[in-house]
Amino acid sequence: MSSSLVETVDTQAPVSLIWQLWSDVTKWPRFLTHVQRVDRIDERRFTWWLALPGADKYFTAELTEVVPEERIAWKATAGTQHAGVVTFHRLSDTTSRVTIQLEYEPEGFVEHLAALTNLDRTVANYDLGQFQRMAEELAAQS
């Protein structure tokens, strides 16, 4: 059974700043609480280590699309199977919208339960809130 989620956050930061924070996937652990580490293999491939309730996981993913200040897409090529895309939307000169969309295959009881109870959405929402706070603090400093 495949699971999917789509979460969005609006932030008081320009899309150029939002893009800077997301464009280097090795920095995602700064605001994605379940991502412990991302190691670059080459320009398009990365190994990710995740800490999830009941399980630690890793996978290798490849960037499938990078459009500056618009979207970053990836798919897993080894390990935990999933794919995702983050899109960036300019709402004004000083506000932006970030949308994250994930498709994944839950493995084991805890992940199936998280998908059924929307815990996965709660975690994604929390992480986007963390990102929003970081982006708005940086925007206020510039």
Score class of each variant (00 low, 15 high):
residue 62 E to L: 00
residue 62 E to W: 05
residue 63 L to E: 02
residue 64 T to S: 10
residue 65 E to T: 12
residue 65 E to Y: 07
residue 69 E to I: 11
residue 69 E to T: 15
residue 69 E to R: 12
residue 70 E to S: 12
residue 71 R to K: 15
residue 72 I to G: 00
residue 73 A to P: 07
residue 73 A to S: 15
residue 73 A to I: 04
residue 74 W to H: 04
residue 74 W to D: 03
residue 74 W to N: 01
residue 75 K to Q: 15
residue 77 T to A: 06
residue 78 A to W: 08
residue 78 A to M: 09
residue 78 A to E: 14
residue 78 A to P: 03
residue 79 G to S: 05
residue 79 G to C: 06
residue 80 T to C: 11
residue 82 H to G: 08
residue 82 H to S: 07
residue 82 H to I: 01
residue 82 H to Y: 12
residue 82 H to W: 10
residue 83 A to S: 15
residue 83 A to F: 04
residue 83 A to P: 00
residue 83 A to N: 11
residue 83 A to R: 14
residue 84 G to A: 07
residue 84 G to Q: 05
residue 87 T to H: 01
residue 88 F to L: 13
residue 88 F to G: 01
residue 89 H to L: 06
residue 89 H to E: 15
residue 89 H to Q: 14
residue 90 R to C: 09
residue 90 R to I: 00
residue 91 L to M: 12
residue 91 L to G: 07
residue 92 S to V: 13
residue 92 S to M: 07
residue 93 D to I: 02
residue 93 D to N: 13
residue 93 D to Y: 04
residue 93 D to H: 13
residue 94 T to E: 06
residue 94 T to D: 10
residue 96 S to D: 03
residue 96 S to C: 07
residue 96 S to N: 03
residue 97 R to N: 10
residue 98 V to K: 00
residue 98 V to A: 03
residue 100 I to A: 02
residue 101 Q to C: 09
residue 101 Q to F: 02
residue 102 L to I: 13
residue 102 L to M: 13
residue 102 L to H: 07
residue 103 E to I: 11
residue 103 E to V: 14
residue 103 E to P: 07
residue 103 E to G: 11
residue 103 E to L: 11
residue 104 Y to G: 02
residue 105 E to T: 15
residue 105 E to L: 14
residue 105 E to A: 14
residue 105 E to P: 04
residue 107 E to P: 01
residue 107 E to A: 14
residue 107 E to K: 14
residue 108 G to V: 09
residue 109 F to I: 14
residue 109 F to S: 06
residue 110 V to K: 06
residue 111 E to P: 00
residue 112 H to G: 08
residue 112 H to N: 15
residue 113 L to M: 13
residue 113 L to K: 03
residue 113 L to F: 09
residue 114 A to Y: 00
residue 114 A to W: 01
residue 114 A to E: 06
residue 115 A to W: 04
residue 116 L to E: 12
residue 116 L to C: 05
residue 116 L to H: 11
residue 116 L to K: 15
residue 116 L to A: 15
residue 117 T to I: 12
residue 117 T to Q: 06
residue 118 N to R: 15
residue 118 N to P: 02
residue 119 L to W: 09
residue 119 L to M: 14
residue 120 D to N: 15
residue 120 D to C: 10
residue 120 D to R: 01
residue 121 R to S: 12
residue 122 T to F: 10
residue 123 V to Q: 08
residue 123 V to C: 05
residue 123 V to A: 10
residue 123 V to M: 13
residue 126 Y to L: 11
residue 126 Y to N: 11
residue 126 Y to K: 15
residue 127 D to T: 01
residue 128 L to R: 00
residue 128 L to T: 02
residue 128 L to W: 02
residue 129 G to T: 10
residue 129 G to C: 05
residue 129 G to I: 02
residue 130 Q to L: 11
residue 130 Q to G: 05
residue 131 F to P: 00
residue 132 Q to D: 03
residue 132 Q to S: 11
residue 134 M to V: 05
residue 134 M to Q: 10
residue 134 M to F: 05
residue 135 A to D: 07
residue 136 E to P: 04
residue 137 E to K: 11
residue 137 E to H: 08
residue 137 E to F: 05
residue 137 E to A: 10
residue 137 E to S: 13
residue 137 E to R: 12
residue 137 E to T: 13
